[in-house]
Simulated scan of single mutants.
Amino acid sequence: MSAPADVLLQVEDLRKWFPVGAGLLSRARHHVKAVDGVSFEIRKGEVLSLVGESGSGKSTVGRTVLRLETPSGGSIRFAGQDVTRLSRAAMRPLRQRMQLIFQDPYASLNPRMTVEDLVAAPLDIHGGAGTAAERRTRVEAALQLVGLPPQSITRYPHEFSGGQRQRIGIARALITGPDLLVADEPVSALDVSIQAQVVNLLLSLQRRLGLAILFISHDLAVVGHISDRIAVMYLGRLVEVAETRRLFTTPRHPYTEALLSAVPIPDPTLRRERIMLSGDLPSPLDPPSGCSFRTRCRYALPDCAAVRPPLREVAPGHFKACIRDDLNMAGQDWSGS
Rank of each mutant, 00 (worst) to 15 (best):
Ala121Met: 14
Leu311Phe: 08
Val192Trp: 04
Ile194Phe: 08
Lys44Asn: 13
Leu220Val: 06
Arg272Gln: 14
Ser217Ala: 15
Val47Asn: 12
Leu145Lys: 14
Leu50Pro: 13
Ser193Thr: 13
Ser292Trp: 15
Leu211Tyr: 05
Lys58Tyr: 12
Leu259Thr: 12
Ala173Ile: 02
Ala89Cys: 00
Leu145His: 09
Pro157Ser: 13
Val182Tyr: 08
Ser152Tyr: 11
Val35Met: 01
Trp334Ile: 04
Asn200Ser: 07
Leu109Glu: 07
Ala212Cys: 09
Gly279Tyr: 03
Cys297Gly: 03
Gly317Ile: 10
Arg294Glu: 00
Ser87Phe: 09
Asp303Thr: 14
Glu313Arg: 11
Phe160Lys: 09
Ser54Ala: 02
Ile101Ser: 12
Arg246Asn: 04
Phe18Thr: 08
Arg97Ala: 14
Leu311Gln: 07
Cys304Phe: 07
Thr84Gly: 04
Ser278Leu: 12
Gln151Lys: 14
Asp333Lys: 13
Ile76Lys: 05
Ala231His: 03
Leu235Thr: 05
Arg172Ser: 08
Pro122Gln: 12
Pro150Asn: 07
Ser2Gln: 14
Ser289Arg: 15
Arg272Val: 12
Ile213Pro: 05
Pro284Ile: 12
Thr295Ser: 14
Ala22Ser: 15
Gly73Ser: 02
Asp326Met: 11
Ser217Trp: 07
Thr176Cys: 15
Gly210Cys: 05
Pro105Phe: 06
Ala141Leu: 03
Lys44Val: 07
